[in-house]
């Protein structure tokens, strides 16, 4: 068996586990009671986070830009979906509109920012995030202000009500797989290959006729659209939204998780999101069940993990894994990374 077929077999196996593991299989005569509802919800949150992280990964890991606005796009999608579904529009329409609106805002935001100087996109997105957060908080007539929007319905799709946690999890899983496939297709298309060329050597790529600015702009807009789509899934998942998850802090955490996972790799966002969501969940359980760990707050552990990982393996967990399993291969996929600041000459 080649590595490639082995890979697809394993991928299929993972998918099968992800589909079946949370479910109660005792009805099929198997000794497996499935996951509890709260654990299923943690998995759903992981998937939604991973979708947004995929978008960040496209922007940061492939197009070499920085975005500090992913939480704001998540918010745009979440609010639009909440408003549309509560007004009676079907979820599918809200979902697509969320992606589209985020895409358009991404273009409007990225166009002037990328015109100036490469790393200024980071600054503009930072300002945008704070501004979006203020709009979510203050435009009470639209967003419900600080009290948020309640009772966001979970959709009924193909006759299935997605209200039960497990059904909504499967739905989120299906969307995640679909969006991951779209992302893989983007990256494998000639268009996506241009990114790889860009990342490896921008000047050479440009001389080969790659229009750097257009590609970068599109990458930013698509990455932002992933944020909007994740938001569209987040609103019915939580059934309630308010401005706090869409602030600057969470935007920084998205950037963090992509780098922790391994930017510029397709598995990176999933791993980064898993570390962020599952680590927090497990640590909090440990913290609350054992007084000895009372001060072991999730953020402390996460911060130390990030610092140690960056010091020893800036390519993230995927990079670390590559280093362990294949020491003879090219050691670093991407050490240069995007440049937040220009190195002075």
């Amino acid at each position: 068996m080649t590595m490639k077929t082995l890979g697809s077999v394993l991928l299929t196996a993972i998918l099968a586990v992800l589909i079946l593991a949370p479910a109660d299989l005792t009805g099929l005569g198997l000794p497996w009671g499935g996951f509890r509802r709260s654990d299923i919800d943690v998995l759903t949150l992981w998937l939604i986070t991973a979708i947004a992280a995929m978008g960040v990964n496209l922007i940061v890991g492939y197009a070499g830009q920085e975005t500090l606005a992913q939480a704001a796009f998540l918010g745009i999608g979440a609010y639009l979906t909440a408003l549309m579904t509560k007004a009676g529009y079907p979820f599918v329409a809200a979902f697509l509109a969320s992606g589209l609106l985020s895409f358009v805002v991404g273009i409007l935001l990225g166009f002037p920012a990328l015109r100036v100087q490469k790393h200024y996109l980071a600054f503009v997105t930072l300002a945008f995030t704070v501004f979006a957060w203020l709009v979510f908080r203050n435009e009470e007539w639209l967003t419900g202000g600080v009290t948020g929007i309640q009772n966001i319905p979970r959709p009924t799709l193909f006759g299935f009500r997605s209200k039960p946690a497990l059904v909504y999890y499967w739905f989120a899983l299906a969307m995640t797989v679909a969006l991951a496939l779209v992302m893989a297709w983007i990256l494998r298309s000639p268009w996506g290959r241009a990114f790889t060329a860009l990342r490896e050597n921008a000047i050479r790529a440009e001389s080969l006729g790659v229009d750097v600015r257009t590609y970068t702009l599109l990458a930013f807009a698509i990455g932002s659209a992933y944020g909007g789509l994740a938001g569209a899934l987040y609103a019915p998942f939580v059934e309630f939204i308010d401005p706090s998850p869409f602030a600057l802090g969470p935007s920084l955490l998205f950037l963090l998780m992509v780098v922790v996972g391994g930017m510029g790799t397709q598995a990176g966002p999933f791993i980064g999101a898993a570390v962020a969501v599952l680590l927090q969940n497990r640590l909090e359980i440990l913290q609350s069940s054992n007084p000895a760990f009372a001060h072991l707050s999730y953020l402390l552990v996460y911060a130390i993990l990030v610092m140690v990982l960056m010091a020893f393996c800036p390519t993230g967990i995927v990079g670390l894994w590559q280093r362990i399993t294949a020491p003879r291969r090219r050691p670093h996929a991407d050490d240069k990374g995007p440049i937040l600041g220009q190195v002075k000459s």
């Binding site: 953020l299 990030v306 610092m307 010091a311 050490d335 240069k336 440049i339």
Partner: peptide
């Protein structure tokens, strides 16, 4: 030596550590 982004990420980590500490 790893370029600016890992360092930026690490300083975000430092900020979280100091704040939560």
């Amino acid at each position: 030596k790893s370029g600016p982004l890992p360092l930026v990420i690490s300083t975000i980590g430092v900020g979280l550590l100091l704040k939560d500490g």
